[in-house]
Design a protein around this nucleic acid. Structure first.
Length: 172
DNA sequence: CCCTGATTCGC
DNA sequence: GCGAATCAGG
């Protein structure tokens, strides 16, 4: 793919808007992030803020971080249900609204429905591609949590995605 | 490991 | 001029 005037313009626009090189490459299509970065340099576009000429690393230094409050939207608890019919005991996951439940003890067997709110262009082989929200609205995003074994979804959403087909109940 | 931008250098 | 490979960093 060659750098047409249109593509160069789009590059300039997106770069000035602060998008990352990989995001721009994804939108342009047909080019790698390296190509984008290389082009940015050739165009002498202002790079991203670094150290202004000084070779000094001068790292910002992370202040002693205050403990963050858990930001879970909801958590899942496990419940044991006995089935009289087959005498089978199985575990069932139930989503519990935390907004109504202000206090809770951090539990080890809680799965995480917390999303990383990734943009479409930020998804990779290892990120959960479960869509959240209305695609036509701004707040639309993807879960983005780590997906094991290159699964398209994280553990939580894989459960939702791969639910066994609903029991067919004959309407008699 | 995921990601970021910067630089080099063979094409 | 182009961009993969590499480097350096978060």
């Amino acid at each position: 793919m060659n750098w047409t005037d249109e593509r160069v313009e789009k590059l300039k626009k997106l770069w000035s808007e602060g998008l990352s090189a990989s995001q721009i490459a994804a939108q342009l299509g047909g080019v790698s992030r390296n190509a984008v970065i290389g082009k940015v340099h050739r165009l002498s576009l202002p790079g991203r803020a670094k150290a202004g000429g000084t070779t000094t690393p001068a790292r910002p230094k992370r202040a002693t971080s205050a403990p963050r409050a858990p930001n879970y939207a909801a958590r899942a608890v496990t419940r044991t249900v006995a089935r009289p019919a087959g005498a089978t005991v199985l575990k069932e996951e139930v989503a519990v609204d935390l907004v109504a439940e202000q206090e809770f003890a951090p539990d080890a067997n809680i799965v995480l429905p917390m999303s990383r709110r990734l943009e479409l262009t930020q998804l990779t082989e290892r990120t959960c591609k479960w869509p959240i929200g209305d695609p036509l609205k701004e707040e639309f995003h993807f879960c983005g949590n780590d997906s094991p074994e290159s699964s398209p979804y994280c553990n939580y959403h894989a459960r939702l995605a791969y639910q066994p087909s609903a029991e067919r109940r004959r309407i008699r």
